[in-house]
Nucleic acid binder design. Structure first.
Length: 592
RNA sequence: GGGGGUGUAGCUCAGUUGGUUAGAGCGCUAGCCUGUCACGCUAGAGGCCGAGGGUUCGAGUCCCUUCACCCUCGCCA
């Protein structure tokens, strides 16, 4: 070892010891006679002081030090003179008086200071990721990530889970997200696909008798990115045999409580609350509601049916719904212009036809350009239903149920943040359960799997597969943290007949099923135990536990929104020779 | 594919209704300074105003096209 201590380690206990530290020059303050260096490594900072006693040679060399030089310093730990102790530094009671200085490596002037206060633009941070990763904030996040992953591994290990690696080179399945494809050299014209998740493999492992499988698995989806979505991401993937939904949920409850305690120092009450999908859609308009605040959706369809206002009445008559939210005390905060902005938000982004609003005035009268279309009695009924009080802002969307969900969910989320309806430090963990098995796919005119084609229906709903698939509920469960989907899983079908029936509903012919998942169907026929599992989005856990608003900050080397790596400049062109070997020809820009 | 935002010195930003030589803070270079810790002081260097085209006597500023990054709708079983 060429160092005896780290830069975060020394305290008064080590005074008078000779030590050797290595690290990066965080800042240097040259006072002529004395030079002060803050030496930084992953563990902290230590002040190095070059005075006359350091010797002329060392002093001269110290004068040449610049930001981000990597140096090694040997010297004596000394107490700081009275009045110069730095309480903001863990090592602030001492400093090192060097007898030897070695420049291990110089640095170009960095495009930004890792120790600086101003955060540069993100593209610059991504290009010089090695400098960005030196920033204490980034190092904290990477360490948090490590803490979360190792906590997950320890937990699973204690519970007899077996860590099994599954292939990265698999076969493409047209269901679900777009695959990242890898061409085969040996089989020209054929392709592997990178896994969207190890779903099928983990089921096979249950059939193979491993009983409890776990993997920190990298997953790939070639879809457009978002603030909480990367094309490659990491899941804690697990699967268990001989379990039902509540076994999996209970297992993850324990993990949540443990990590909340270890990482955040927060006690979480178990069991975590569970809400059905239908209830979530009614109360919040979304299957991952943020339960840190109220402002729930309120249905006034029954009132709207009798209202004089044509827009409301017609919507209900056509089978739609009229629902609203009450932004408590927000009437003053939203001018006509502010409401116009909310209106264009829900109409342009979520397809709502409009946004009806009322400001609640003294005596609980409702003021709005559309108020004249209602009788006073009806306005009073609406106010009553909305629990309105003077100063409130009532917002309504009249539309198809799905549209009211999307628009009001988005409004609630936006208003909750703008009106600071919750403390960003609180953490809310909950489960959404009993998802529908199927969602009607308008585009293809058939049922689509809400989760994936191997999800088991609830035992009491199996008969609905043939009678009313839309009503059939799945043994599926999503973990929601602060309004973000942080994990999801299902109990799987282990009965080949039920599996065939589900394929049929999804429009997958027996031939297609055989071609795509023949191996799974075969395996299911050789003694498959009842099994189920879950996958947790590790990047999102880091984001939520670290209170970050961006998934890129949780990943050491993330991709941009266009799915490129600004540091390595991937993806890049390849040699013509490589393409020839793969039997691949690139089409021109004209598509030929 | 659609909507929105940003782009000016190495970095973070300001730049008026189009008008002389485009500024500030930080960083950088040099000098001075034993107690600083965002050290201080003095001096200096540093600009294709993202790129291309247009309007104009004149464009950082107005118009068109385009590129990059971010947010978002669609998409993400």
């Amino acid at each position: 070892m060429i160092r005896t201590h780290t830069c975060g380690q020394l305290r008064s206990d080590q005074i008078a010891q000779e030590v050797t530290l290595c690290g990066w020059v965080d800042s240097y303050r040259d006072h002529g006679g004395g030079i002060f260096i803050d030496l930084r490594d992953r563990y902290g900072k230590t002040q190095i002081v070059f005075g006359p006693e350091s010797g002329a040679e060392n002093h001269e060399l110290a004068r040449t030090l610049r930001s981000e030089f990597v140096i090694s310093v040997t010297g004596t730990v000394a107490p700081r003179p009275e009045g110069t102790v730095n309480p903001r530094l863990a090592t602030g009671e001492i400093e090192v008086r060097p007898t030897r200085l070695e420049i291990l490596n110089k640095s170009l002037t960095p495009p930004f200071q890792p120790g600086g206060k101003e955060l540069p633009n993100e593209d610059l941070r991504l290009k010089y990721r090695y400098l960005d990763l030196r920033r204490p904030e980034m190092q904290n996040t990477i360490l948090l990530r490590h803490q979360i992953i190792s906590g997950m591994r320890k937990y699973c290990n204690e519970l007899d889970f077996v860590d099994v690696e599954t292939p990265m080179l698999g076969r493409s399945t047209p269901e679900g997200a777009r695959d990242y494809l890898v061409p085969s050299r040996v089989h020209n014209g054929k392709f592997f696909a990178l896994p969207q998740s190890p779903q099928l493999y983990k089921q096979i492992l249950m059939i193979a008798g491993y009983d409890r499988y776990v993997q920190v698995a990298r997953c790939f989806r070639d879809e457009d990115l978002r603030a909480d979505r990367q094309p490659e991401f990491t899941q804690l993937d697990l699967e268990m045999s001989f379990v039902d939904s509540s076994d999996i949920i209970g297992l993850i409850d324990g993990l949540v409580a443990r990590l909340a305690r270890e990482v955040l120092g927060q006690e979480v009450k178990l069991p975590l609350p569970r809400m059905t999908y239908d209830e979530a859609m009614e109360r919040f308009g979304h299957d991952a509601p943020d339960l840190r605040f109220g402002m729930e959706l309120v249905d006034i369809s029954d009132l709207a049916r009798e209202a004089e206002f044509r827009v409301f009445r017609a919507t209900v008559d056509e089978g739609g719904r009229v629902r609203g939210i009450n932004a408590k005390g927000a009437a003053a905060a939203y001018s006509r212009k502010g409401i116009d902005e909310l209106t264009s938000y829900v109409t342009q982004d979520f397809g709502a036809k409009g946004l009806a609003w009322f400001k609640v005035e003294e005596g609980r009268t409702l003021a709005s350009p559309i108020a004249k279309n209602f009788t006073p009695a009806m306005l009073e009924k609406i106010a009553e239903r909305m629990d309105a009080a003077p100063g409130d802002l009532l917002l309504f969307v009249a539309d198809r149920f799905e549209v009211t969900c999307k628009a009001l969910y988005a409004l609630r989320k936006r208003l909750g943040e703008a009106l600071k309806l919750y403390d960003p430090a609180t953490m809310n963990f909950s489960w959404i359960v009993e998802f529908p098995m199927f969602a009607w796919d308008e585009e293809n005119g058939c049922w689509g799997a809400m989760h994936h084609p191997f999800t088991a229906p609830r035992p009491q709903d199996v008969a609905l597969l043939s009678s009313d698939p839309g009503k059939c509920r799945a043994q599926a469960y999503d973990l929601v943290i602060n309004g973000t989907e942080a994990g999801g899983g299902t109990i799987r079908i282990h009965d080949p007949q039920v599996q065939q029936q589900v394929f049929g509903l999804l429009g997958i012919t027996p031939e297609q099923a055989r071609e795509r998942f023949g191996f799974l169907l075969d395996a299911l026929a050789y003694g498959a135990p009842p099994h189920g599992g879950i996958a947790l989005g590790i990047d999102r856990w880091v984001m939520l536990f670290g209170r970050l608003d961006n998934i890129r900050d949780c990943i050491a080397f993330p991709k941009t929104q266009k799915a490129t790596d600004l540091m390595t400049e991937a993806p890049g062109a390849v040699d013509a020779k490589q393409l020839r070997e793969l039997g691949i020809q690139i089409r021109g820009a004209d598509g030929r």
